[in-house]
Design a protein around this nucleic acid. Structure first.
Lengths: 209, 209
DNA sequence: GATTATACATACATCCATGAATGTATAATC
DNA sequence: GATTATACATTCATGGATGTATGTATAATC
């Protein structure tokens, strides 16, 4: 076939990424063949090898398309208002994205249950860890700030308290995506996070006492 | 080679399971070849196909060797003493096992980060979900019991509160095993669980107020 | 002590995925 | 409007993994 215009080329690139999502989700990243992905996109492996170096590169591009905007959004409002409300807001907004955007949800599901975090997949694990660390640093800072504002001493180190909060968030998201026991992620998430924060000693907005 | 005695046969079976752990952990389940596993065990693929139906069967056997005893231990003491202490104790004992038993830890790591939960792996995902559901049911029952004993109304449904606790546990274990930010799993686990339970309204043993 | 089932090792056939090489028609570029 | 880089499709060569079939020496069994 012949050369496409730049717009057309980008369209096939997006189609390849869409198809990769489908096939990765269905077969898992390891057992998904580039031929099947290409076919699902109405193209051939030639197109994939043109746009991407190999399967790992394709996978990373697929992840970036979803995670980059998300992380950018997380870094958005930094120093305004109540740090505790900001923590709760960030978590709520991430959970909301998972619930409302099927696209994002499927990519999360792939990253959590459909890929093997092995050396060969160059940097996938490292990038996941880096992303977690940034989130953790932010939570730690905000929790410490809020503790000072309410002039209370946490029953555990700031960083550990943040670790627990992050674990709670991750655990809820993963449990919900696994889907074994369906539940209202946003409501349970809000309540569980509130309980955890309250248990740390914080006084939350909207609490009766 | 020739026929082995029954004890010898079981020894090679165990060696195959050990080797499977090693290779699965290193390469991931998908990219691990049966030839490599056999070689790591000092045997050939013939031995694997004698003891196991295929790779899935081998994987399940490897999982069973660790999870069956664990689940049995969890089901152990059922109706004695304080239900809240029992919840905390169960979680602490599971975390302790992860910390102390490298064998168990590696199998957990394989199940969490080195395998694709895909239809083809027949029942792996389903068994995981079933195990989670049993744990969840137990937590729900104990949390409800403890709430009645302390005559308090939880700020969320029993099942949802249990969901949060389980998510917290899962999240902590996974974060710890991922290893990006090393921390004291048992201490942070105990503190975070205590905070969550306190935030739900429970009065915990050993609390000052 | 002859027979039989066992516990593997070896050999074989098949399939499929990958990566690179090559072809090619056409947008861009000048 | 000739040239060139582009955006793929097609073909080829290779390797590696799987499953099965077969061989075989020896514990068990009687």
């Amino acid at each position: 076939m012949a050369r496409r215009t730049k717009a057309e080329a980008d369209a096939t690139r997006q189609a390849l990424l869409d198809a990769a999502e489908d096939v990765f989700h269905e077969k898992g990243v390891g057992r998904a063949s580039l031929a099947e992905i290409a076919q699902a996109a109405g193209a051939t492996r030639g197109a994939i090898y043109w746009h991407f170096k190999d399967k790992v590169d394709l996978f990373n591009a697929m992840m970036d398309r979803v995670t980059l905007p998300l992380e950018a959004a997380c870094r958005g409002p930094d120093a305004d208002g109540d740090p505790l409300a900001r923590v709760q807001g960030t978590i709520q907004s991430l959970l909301a994205t998972a619930v409302e955007d099927a696209h994002t949800r499927r990519v999360f599901e792939i990253a959590m249950y459909r890929v093997e975090y092995v050396a060969e997949l160059g940097g996938v694990r490292e990038r996941h860890e880096a992303s977690l660390k940034r989130f953790h640093a932010r939570l730690t800072k905000d929790l410490a700030l809020a503790a000072r504002e309410q002039s209370l001493a946490l029953p555990m180190a700031d960083a550990d308290a943040a670790l627990g909060l992050q674990a709670l968030f991750d655990g809820l998201l993963q449990t919900w995506i696994l889907g074994g026991t369906p539940f209202d992620l946003q409501r349970v998430g809000a309540d569980a996070v509130a309980a955890y924060l309250r248990g740390l000693g914080y006084r939350l907005q909207g609490d009766m006492r």
